[in-house]
């Protein structure tokens, strides 16, 4: 039922309208998407100090050499991997559980749905500020609660010790983006035909069995997509870390985005920052290719 399968004459006649309709997109895309990316790539071959734009100079692959020789780049890379992995695993587990919970046929479930999906729309600035406030080691409510519950004796320095800071940034990320997983899974759950469950029931499968045999296979596809998407996004996140820890303490929560920003702004080495960006783009292109491969979606354009 797609365009090419319909044999109408009027179609060719007004292809021009079609092109007219796509022109604004083409212009906007060229100006605001393609050009910045090209510019980012170009910059990565230049030494560029934003305070002295006229002294910009082509230096070949020098910026890439700089970052690949910089221990902090690799440290950022590694930390980004840890951050991403932990975030994704937690988001997926919690997200699926929540979706199953919210899929229960209970009265008033839509209220819970609303509340549990809510974090997704909370601005990162807001949650970062709130977490700074709640995790304040001396006067924060989290340490106070843990202490009065007898779980800890000493204050935990959530944002001032490297491992805890990493944990806190992961928590922020999981809190904010688990709803994304939940929404996606929930949407899919709602489309699973009930007959499948009925059949399983007839076969005498228990609740957990039904989940493994019926639900999970149905969710496989959506989960793959969600995991790929979220991995790419999480790996490149900037604000979630910058606003909570600025990459600290030390450089213990640096990821590539923070590293790039620091190079561009603090060090005024826009070229080096751009080179990091190019590396990030390579990684995400690789991720996108996997996605397209998995779903072969060039072929189902006509679906």
């Amino acid at each position: 039922m797609s365009a090419e399968s319909s044999p109408a004459d009027w179609k060719k006649a007004d292809t021009r309208i079609g092109i007219l309709f796509v022109i604004p997109f083409a212009i906007a895309a060229l100006l605001f998407m393609v050009y910045p990316v090209i510019e980012a790539v170009r910059l990565s071959f230049y030494e560029h100090n934003p305070l002295r734009p006229e002294a910009s100079e082509f230096i070949g692959l020098e910026n890439f050499r700089t970052i690949f020789e910089d221990a902090l780049f690799w440290k950022s890379f590694q930390q980004a991997a840890v951050w991403t992995f932990c975030s994704i695993v937690l988001q997926t587990l919690i997200g699926v559980s929540l979706a199953l919970l919210l899929h229960l046929p209970l009265r008033g479930i839509s209220i819970f749905r609303g509340l549990l999906l809510f974090p997704y729309i909370v601005p990162t600035v807001v949650i970062a500020l709130i977490m700074q406030w709640m995790l304040n080691a001396e006067i924060g409510v989290v340490n106070w609660s843990l202490k009065s519950a007898g779980l800890i004796d000493e204050n935990i320095y959530w944002l001032a010790t490297p491992s805890m800071a990493m944990l806190s940034t992961i928590f922020l990320n999981v809190w904010k983006y688990t709803p994304f997983v939940t929404i996606c899974v929930l949407a899919r759950l709602q489309t699973i035909p009930l007959e499948l469950y009925d059949a399983a029931k007839v076969d005498g499968a228990g609740g957990f069995r039904r989940f493994l045999d019926v639900t999970l296979p149905q969710l496989a596809e959506v989960l793959t997509v969600v995991v790929i998407f979220r991995t790419i996004w999480t790996f490149n996140k900037f604000e979630e870390i910058y606003l909570l820890t600025k990459g600290g303490p030390g450089t213990s929560t640096f990821n590539l985005a923070i590293y790039s920003f620091e190079q561009s702004v603090a060090n005024l080495r826009m070229g080096v920052g751009a080179a990091v960006g190019v590396v990030m783009m390579f990684l995400l292109f690789a991720g996108s290719l996997i996605y397209m491969r998995v779903f072969r979606f060039d072929e189902d354009d006509t679906a």
């Binding site: 080691a137 204050n155 320095y157 001032a160 820890t245």
Partner: peptide, 21 residues
């Protein structure tokens, strides 16, 4: 020093003085 000092900046130092910590 306070354990949190490794992330202290202007604000936190003043906080620690003013609150008597």
């Amino acid at each position: 020093m306070p354990k949190g000092a490794v992330s202290y900046s202007f604000l936190e130092v003043v906080d620690s003085i003013v609150t008597g910590r």
